[in-house]
Design a protein around this nucleic acid. Structure first.
Lengths: 211, 211, 211, 211
DNA sequence: TATGAATGAGTATTCATTCAT
DNA sequence: CATGAATGAATACTCATTCAT
C-alpha cells in the first residue's frame, strides 16, 4: 500500500511516517558504517532502531529501496553541506580547493558515518551486472559538479590543460581515500589532511606561470 | 586429505590438482571482480568453473583458504609484473612515474580482473578485528614500496616536502579509480590515462625549481 | 530478536512463544529418543513438529541452545518427579530402594522418551574436550544425590562397606538398561522390573546381619 | 564385485585382502573409540590407515558393512578372550564371577579401544526404526551365554530365584559402565573395580544360606 | 588394486520477505 | 501502525559414495 512506485496521487506522508523513515535511515547509516554493507542486515538495523524488522519493510518496499533512500539522503546531505560554501566562490581555483576539497573533507569530519556508509555501499558490488545499488545519477551529479569547476578553470586560464575525467576521478578518490585511514585512526588530523590535498591538487591543476 | 597444513612431506601435487586450483582461483577472481566480494559465493564461483561447490572444497580447505590463495596469486602476479620494470630505475622520479604509476596501470590493462578483484577484497569489511581476510602484509608491502620511493625523492631533492601517507593514499587510490571506469568503458585508453596520471603526480610531487 | 542473552528486561514471553518452544522441545526429545543424538537433525525435529527448520532457529539461538533447553527440561522433569517421593524418606535404605530406584523406574514408565533422550544425549560423544553438550552439573547432581544416599547408609550401618563410585555407576546403568528393553517391548512390566532391581541392590548393599 | 553378499562361490580371499580388511577394521576401531561414532568418518579412518577412502569402499560395500565387520571382529575377539577362561569352570558361581565379570573386565583392560568402540557403535542410534547397526544376534549371543550361566546356578541351587533378563541386563550394563569412567581416568584400577563388581553380584545372586 | 576426482544429499545457520493479527 | 510468526532461498561446509584411470 504504502511504499509502491511514487505517484502524484500519494496522500501526503504523515508526520509519523516521515519521522520513522528518517529514524530508520539514520540507523541504517550507522549499521552500514560500523558493520559494513554485507553485515548490515535488516535485523541489525532494526535492533539499533529498537523496532522489529517488519517496520522497516512497512516503510520501505524492500532492502534495496532502503539502501536507495540511504544513499539519497547521504548525497543530499553532502551536497547541501558543500553547496553552502560553494555559492559565493569567485574563482575556479577557490571553488576547487576551498569548496570541493575543503568542504568535502569537512563533511567527512562532520558526518564520518555518512561518508563511511556511502563508501561501503558503493564498494559492495552489484548483484546483476548493470543493476546498481546506488542511483548512478547521484554520483554522476557529484562528478558533474566537479567537472564543471575544472572546465571553468581551464577556460579562465587558471588551470593547465588536462583530461577532465581523469582529474575528476583522481580528486574524488583521493578524498575518499581518507575514510579507511579515518577508521584506522579516528584522531586523524583532517585539517592537515585537507591542506595536503589542497596543495597537491593546486600544483596538479594550476597553469604554468607564463614568465 | 588434500588441503591440510602444508608440510614438507606433502607429495608433489598432481598435474590435475595444479590445473584445478588454478582454474578455481581464476574463476574466483572473475567472480569477485564482477560481483564484488560479498556476492562471490562458492556457488557463484563453482558455476563459472562449471563444477560443483564440493570440488572447490576438495581443493581448498575452506572459503578463507581460497580467498587467501586468490590474494596471494594476485599480489604475486602484480608484483612480478611491476618489479621487472622497477629494477633498473635510477631516480626516484623515474621510479614513481615510470614504474609505480606506469607499470601499475599497465598491469591493470593486462589483468583488469585481477586488479578489480584485489580492490574488492581489500575494501571488503573484515569480520572480526584482528582476523583479516588477506594477509595485511601484502597490502602494506605495496604501500611501503611506494612510500620508500617518495622518501627517496624527498631526500634526493627531486620531490618537494609533503606528507608521505597522504601522497601514498592519493596515488594508489587515483590509480585504483581507473577500475570502475574500465568496467563502464572497456575501451578506455589506458596509455593516455597513465600519461595524465604521470603528469598530475609529477607536478604534485616535484620540487620547486630553484630559479 | 528472540533468543538473545537472557536479561531481566526481556519482555514476558508470549503465549505462542511458550507453546512453540515447548512443542519444539517435545519433538526434539522424541527425535533424539528414537533416532539417537547424532541423527536428530534440525530437519528431523522440524519434520516431527510439522514446521520448517527456520522456526526452530527463530525460537532457539542455535542447535546447542535447543539441546541445552531439552536437557534442562528433561532433568527438571525427572528431578521433580523423583523429589516428590524423596522428601520424607527416613532411612537410607528407603531412600535408595523406594525413591532412587523405584521413582526413577516410575519416571521411565511415565516418560520413556524423556529418559531415552537424556541417555542418548549424555552418552553421545562430546565435540571438543571442555565444551560439553549438556551442563555436566546436571548429571553430576544426579550422581551426587545417589552417592550421598549411599554414604548416609554406610555411616548409619544400614549398608556394608563398598566403593561408592562403583555402586553409583552400577545402579544408574542398571536402571538405564531398562530403556533399550522398553524399546524392544513396550509392554515390559516395569513394576516387576523395579521389584527385581530393588531386591538386587538391597542384597548388594545391605550390611551383613550381625548374628 | 568383491564385497557383495557372501556366497560359497566367492574365490578364496587373497592374503592382501585379508590384511587390508584387518588393517582397516583396526583403524576404524581406533577412530570410533577416540572420536565417537558420529565423528568417525571414512576420511578419518582412511587417514589413520594411511590410505584413501576409496580403498575402504573397495573392501567393504559401504560404511554400514564396515561397521558390521568391526562389531563382528570385536565380539569375536571378546568372546575368544572370555571363552578361554570359561571352559573349565565347575560352578555357576565361578563362571559368573570369575569368568563373565572377571574376564570381561580383563578384556576391557586389555582392549580398551575395542570395548569403547563397541559401546560407541551400540549407543549411536539407528537410522530407521528396526534397522540396527550391529547384528542383534551378536549381542544376543553374549546375553544368552550369561543367561545360561544364571539358569545353571539357579538350577544347581547356587543362586537365589530372580528374573534372568533383569539380572543379565544389570550385570552387562554395570560392566559397560566402566568404559566412560575409564575415559575420564585412564589410570582407573580395573582389578579393584572387578573385585567390587564380583562382590556386588555375588551378594545379588547367591542363594540365602539355609541355616 | 588403489587413487584421486567429483558428486549430491545433508548439516546448521542467516536473512529478506510475507502475512495474520 | 506495528509486531511476531513463519517461510524459503541462500550460505559454507561434511561426507558417503561412484567412477575413470
Amino acid at each position: 500500500m504504502k511504499s509502491e512506485i511514487k505517484t502524484a496521487d500519494q496522500p501526503k506522508p504523515s508526520f509519523i511516517e516521515i519521522a520513522r523513515r528518517a529514524q530508520i535511515i539514520e540507523c541504517a547509516i550507522d549499521a552500514i558504517a560500523e558493520l559494513g554493507f554485507a553485515q548490515a542486515s535488516l535485523a541489525q538495523i532494526a535492533k539499533r532502531a529498537g523496532i522489529s524488522t517488519g517496520v522497516i519493510l512497512y516503510y520501505f518496499a524492500g532492502k534495496d529501496e532502503l539502501i536507495r533512500a540511504v544513499s539519497d539522503h547521504v548525497y543530499a546531505t553532502g551536497e547541501g553541506f558543500v553547496r553552502r560554501k560553494a555559492e559565493q566562490q569567485e574563482t575556479a581555483r577557490q571553488a576547487l580547493l576551498d569548496t570541493f576539497i575543503g568542504a568535502t573533507v569537512d563533511f567527512i569530519g562532520a558526518y564520518p558515518n555518512y561518508s563511511h556508509a556511502l563508501m561501503n555501499i558503493a564498494r559492495s558490488g552489484r548483484r546483476e551486472p548493470g543493476e546498481r545499488l546506488i542511483d548512478p545519477a547521484l554520483n554522476a551529479a557529484r562528478e558533474a559538479g566537479l567537472a564543471s569547476i575544472l572546465r571553468w578553470g581551464k577556460e579562465s586560464g587558471e588551470f593547465r590543460p588536462f583530461s577532465t575525467p581523469v582529474m575528476v576521478a583522481s580528486i574524488i578518490d583521493s578524498i575518499d581515500a581518507i575514510l579507511p585511514q579515518l577508521v584506522r585512526d579516528p584522531n586523524l588530523d583532517l585539517k592537515a589532511y585537507a591542506r595536503e590535498l589542497v596543495e597537491l591538487f593546486d600544483r596538479a591543476t594550476r597553469a604554468d606561470s607564463p614568465g
